[in-house]
Protein backbone atom coordinates (compact mmCIF):
# COMPACT_ATOMS: atom_id res chain seq x y z
CA UNK A 1 0.00 0.00 0.00
CA UNK A 2 1.73 3.12 -1.22
CA UNK A 3 0.18 6.42 -0.30
CA UNK A 4 0.82 9.01 -2.96
CA UNK A 5 -1.48 11.86 -2.10
CA UNK A 6 -0.95 13.68 1.19
CA UNK A 7 -2.75 16.58 2.88
CA UNK A 8 -1.17 20.02 2.44
CA UNK A 9 1.34 20.74 5.21
CA UNK A 10 -0.84 23.48 6.60
CA UNK A 11 -3.68 21.07 7.35
CA UNK A 12 -1.37 18.61 9.09
CA UNK A 13 0.15 21.48 11.04
CA UNK A 14 -3.25 22.63 12.25
CA UNK A 15 -4.16 19.03 13.06
CA UNK A 16 -1.01 18.66 15.15
CA UNK A 17 -1.73 21.93 16.93
CA UNK A 18 -5.25 20.71 17.67
CA UNK A 19 -6.85 23.54 15.74
CA UNK A 20 -8.76 21.85 12.94
CA UNK A 21 -12.51 21.81 12.69
CA UNK A 22 -13.60 18.55 14.39
CA UNK A 23 -14.99 17.04 11.19
CA UNK A 24 -11.81 17.83 9.27
CA UNK A 25 -9.83 16.53 12.21
CA UNK A 26 -11.27 13.03 11.77
CA UNK A 27 -10.29 12.88 8.11
CA UNK A 28 -6.72 13.98 8.76
CA UNK A 29 -6.52 11.57 11.71
CA UNK A 30 -7.56 8.71 9.42
CA UNK A 31 -4.90 9.64 6.87
CA UNK A 32 -2.20 10.06 9.52
CA UNK A 33 -3.06 6.65 10.96
CA UNK A 34 -2.32 5.09 7.58
CA UNK A 35 0.62 7.28 6.56
CA UNK A 36 4.03 6.95 8.22
CA UNK A 37 5.30 9.99 6.35
CA UNK A 38 2.64 12.30 7.76
CA UNK A 39 2.99 10.73 11.21
CA UNK A 40 6.58 11.95 11.19
CA UNK A 41 5.42 15.44 10.27
CA UNK A 42 2.93 15.40 13.16
CA UNK A 43 5.64 14.13 15.53
CA UNK A 44 7.92 16.97 14.47
CA UNK A 45 5.16 19.47 15.18
CA UNK A 46 4.53 17.97 18.58
CA UNK A 47 8.17 18.47 19.44
CA UNK A 48 7.97 22.08 18.34
CA UNK A 49 4.82 22.29 20.45
CA UNK A 50 6.82 21.06 23.41
CA UNK A 51 9.41 23.75 22.75
CA UNK A 52 6.64 26.37 22.57
CA UNK A 53 5.26 25.09 25.86
CA UNK A 54 8.60 25.24 27.57
CA UNK A 55 9.20 28.76 26.25
CA UNK A 56 5.75 30.01 27.27
CA UNK A 57 5.55 32.87 29.72
CA UNK A 58 4.57 31.11 32.98
CA UNK A 59 1.18 32.13 34.40
CA UNK A 60 0.75 31.45 38.13
CA UNK A 61 -1.98 29.03 39.11
CA UNK A 62 -4.30 29.59 42.03
CA UNK A 63 -2.66 29.15 45.44
CA UNK A 64 -2.55 25.50 46.46
CA UNK A 65 -3.21 24.26 42.91
CA UNK A 66 -0.67 21.47 43.22
CA UNK A 67 -2.24 20.18 46.45
CA UNK A 68 -5.63 20.45 44.82
CA UNK A 69 -4.39 18.35 41.90
CA UNK A 70 -2.97 15.75 44.32
CA UNK A 71 -6.30 15.69 46.13
CA UNK A 72 -8.12 15.08 42.87
CA UNK A 73 -5.70 12.27 42.04
CA UNK A 74 -6.25 10.71 45.47
CA UNK A 75 -10.00 11.03 45.10
CA UNK A 76 -9.76 9.13 41.82
CA UNK A 77 -11.35 12.06 40.05
CA UNK A 78 -11.33 10.91 36.46
CA UNK A 79 -13.00 11.83 33.27
CA UNK A 80 -14.71 8.55 32.53
CA UNK A 81 -13.70 7.15 29.20
CA UNK A 82 -16.57 6.05 27.06
CA UNK A 83 -16.16 2.49 25.92
CA UNK A 84 -15.39 2.24 22.26
CA UNK A 85 -18.35 1.13 20.27
CA UNK A 86 -16.24 -1.31 18.28
CA UNK A 87 -18.73 -0.81 15.53
CA UNK A 88 -16.04 0.79 13.44
CA UNK A 89 -13.51 -1.93 14.18
CA UNK A 90 -15.96 -4.63 13.26
CA UNK A 91 -16.68 -3.08 9.90
CA UNK A 92 -13.04 -2.50 8.97
CA UNK A 93 -13.24 1.25 9.51
CA UNK A 94 -10.39 3.19 11.13
CA UNK A 95 -10.23 3.09 14.90
CA UNK A 96 -10.59 6.85 14.94
CA UNK A 97 -14.25 6.32 14.18
CA UNK A 98 -14.81 4.04 17.17
CA UNK A 99 -15.43 7.13 19.25
CA UNK A 100 -18.17 8.53 17.08
CA UNK A 101 -21.73 7.69 16.48
CA UNK A 102 -22.27 6.69 12.86
CA UNK A 103 -25.73 7.21 11.41
CA UNK A 104 -27.79 4.98 9.16
CA UNK A 105 -27.03 4.42 5.51
CA UNK A 106 -28.71 6.93 3.20
CA UNK A 107 -28.99 6.81 -0.52
CA UNK A 108 -27.42 9.78 -2.26
CA UNK A 109 -27.67 8.94 -5.94
CA UNK A 110 -27.54 5.77 -8.04
CA UNK A 111 -24.57 3.71 -6.90
CA UNK A 112 -23.81 6.13 -4.09
CA UNK A 113 -24.71 5.93 -0.40
CA UNK A 114 -23.52 7.75 2.70
CA UNK A 115 -23.50 7.43 6.49
CA UNK A 116 -23.33 10.63 8.53
CA UNK A 117 -20.86 10.76 11.41
CA UNK A 118 -21.98 12.60 14.51
CA UNK A 119 -19.17 15.01 15.38
CA UNK A 120 -19.56 17.00 18.60
CA UNK A 121 -18.46 20.57 18.17
CA UNK A 122 -18.29 20.59 14.39
CA UNK A 123 -19.41 24.01 13.23
CA UNK A 124 -17.82 24.40 9.86
CA UNK A 125 -17.98 21.04 8.18
CA UNK A 126 -19.83 17.80 8.43
CA UNK A 127 -18.27 14.38 8.25
CA UNK A 128 -19.62 11.30 6.56
CA UNK A 129 -18.67 8.02 5.00
CA UNK A 130 -19.27 7.92 1.28
CA UNK A 131 -19.73 4.53 -0.35
CA UNK A 132 -19.73 4.07 -4.10
CA UNK A 133 -20.35 0.98 -6.20
CA UNK A 134 -17.51 -0.19 -8.43
CA UNK A 135 -17.37 1.73 -11.68
CA UNK A 136 -19.62 4.57 -10.51
CA UNK A 137 -18.98 7.82 -12.36
CA UNK A 138 -19.86 10.92 -10.45
CA UNK A 139 -21.22 13.93 -12.29
CA UNK A 140 -18.79 16.71 -12.94
CA UNK A 141 -18.90 18.95 -9.92
CA UNK A 142 -17.28 21.76 -7.96
CA UNK A 143 -17.34 22.53 -4.25
CA UNK A 144 -18.48 25.87 -2.92
CA UNK A 145 -16.01 25.51 -0.07
CA UNK A 146 -13.69 22.66 0.79
CA UNK A 147 -13.93 18.91 0.83
CA UNK A 148 -11.38 16.71 2.55
CA UNK A 149 -11.39 13.07 1.55
CA UNK A 150 -9.45 10.08 2.79
CA UNK A 151 -9.88 6.82 0.90
CA UNK A 152 -10.46 3.87 3.23
CA UNK A 153 -11.09 1.17 0.68
CA UNK A 154 -11.16 0.77 -3.09
CA UNK A 155 -10.15 3.67 -5.31
CA UNK A 156 -11.28 6.51 -7.51
CA UNK A 157 -9.60 8.57 -10.18
CA UNK A 158 -9.91 12.04 -11.60
CA UNK A 159 -7.60 14.51 -13.35
CA UNK A 160 -5.54 14.71 -10.16
CA UNK A 161 -4.59 11.04 -10.39
CA UNK A 162 -5.62 7.75 -8.85
CA UNK A 163 -6.56 7.67 -5.18
CA UNK A 164 -6.31 4.39 -3.27
CA UNK A 165 -6.47 3.42 0.42
CA UNK A 166 -4.89 6.06 2.63
CA UNK A 167 -4.71 8.67 -0.12
CA UNK A 168 -5.94 12.14 0.67
CA UNK A 169 -7.77 14.43 -1.71
CA UNK A 170 -8.63 18.08 -1.26
CA UNK A 171 -11.40 19.65 -3.30
CA UNK A 172 -12.30 23.31 -3.37
CA UNK A 173 -14.06 25.86 -5.51
CA UNK A 174 -11.19 25.97 -7.97
CA UNK A 175 -11.43 22.31 -8.86
CA UNK A 176 -13.92 21.01 -11.38
CA UNK A 177 -13.87 17.28 -11.38
CA UNK A 178 -15.61 14.13 -12.32
CA UNK A 179 -14.31 11.26 -10.22
CA UNK A 180 -14.73 7.69 -11.41
CA UNK A 181 -14.69 4.81 -8.95
CA UNK A 182 -12.34 1.92 -9.67
CA UNK A 183 -14.09 -1.00 -11.32
CA UNK A 184 -12.69 -3.78 -9.14
CA UNK A 185 -14.33 -3.09 -5.78
CA UNK A 186 -16.60 -0.63 -3.95
CA UNK A 187 -14.98 2.55 -2.76
CA UNK A 188 -15.36 3.81 0.80
CA UNK A 189 -14.20 7.31 1.67
CA UNK A 190 -14.20 9.39 4.80
CA UNK A 191 -15.22 12.93 3.90
CA UNK A 192 -15.41 16.28 5.66
CA UNK A 193 -17.32 18.80 3.65
CA UNK A 194 -18.08 22.44 4.17
CA UNK A 195 -20.32 24.30 1.76
CA UNK A 196 -22.13 22.45 -1.00
CA UNK A 197 -21.62 20.46 -4.12
CA UNK A 198 -22.24 22.29 -7.37
CA UNK A 199 -23.04 19.97 -10.18
CA UNK A 200 -22.19 21.40 -13.54
CA UNK A 201 -24.27 21.48 -16.70
CA UNK A 202 -28.00 21.45 -17.35
CA UNK A 203 -28.45 17.90 -16.16
CA UNK A 204 -26.62 18.82 -12.99
CA UNK A 205 -28.88 21.75 -12.31
CA UNK A 206 -31.88 19.53 -12.82
CA UNK A 207 -30.82 16.77 -10.48
CA UNK A 208 -28.97 18.85 -7.90
CA UNK A 209 -32.02 19.21 -5.66
CA UNK A 210 -32.15 15.43 -5.40
CA UNK A 211 -28.57 14.88 -4.39
CA UNK A 212 -28.54 14.84 -0.63
CA UNK A 213 -25.06 15.37 0.71
Amino acid sequence: MTIEHHPPEELIARFAAGRLDPAEHIVIAAHVAMCARCRRFVAAFERLGGAALEAAEPAALAAGACDAAMARIDAGDTVPAVPRSRRAEASGLPRTLDYYEIGRVRRVAPGLTMRPIVVPGATKSRAFLLMADPGTRMLEHTHTETELTCVLQGSFSHEGGRFGPGDFDLGDETIDHRPAVGSDMPCVCLVAMSGKLRINGLLGRLIEPFIRL
Binding site: A29, A30, V79, A81, V82, Y99, P120
Partner: peptide, 21 residues
Protein backbone atom coordinates in the same frame (compact mmCIF):
# COMPACT_ATOMS: atom_id res chain seq x y z
CA UNK B 1 -17.53 20.14 25.48
CA UNK B 2 -18.23 23.84 25.39
CA UNK B 3 -20.08 23.60 22.14
CA UNK B 4 -22.30 20.74 23.12
CA UNK B 5 -23.19 20.08 26.73
CA UNK B 6 -24.28 16.49 26.19
CA UNK B 7 -21.07 15.51 24.57
CA UNK B 8 -19.85 11.98 25.07
CA UNK B 9 -16.94 11.94 27.46
CA UNK B 10 -14.15 10.05 25.92
CA UNK B 11 -10.48 9.61 25.93
CA UNK B 12 -9.67 11.28 22.65
CA UNK B 13 -6.08 10.25 22.80
CA UNK B 14 -6.62 7.42 20.37
CA UNK B 15 -7.72 9.94 17.82
CA UNK B 16 -4.54 11.85 18.03
CA UNK B 17 -2.18 8.99 18.39
CA UNK B 18 -3.88 6.50 16.17
CA UNK B 19 -2.29 3.11 16.27
CA UNK B 20 -0.34 2.85 13.06
CA UNK B 21 -2.09 0.53 10.69
Amino acid sequence: RGRRAKRMLQDIEAEYRPEPV
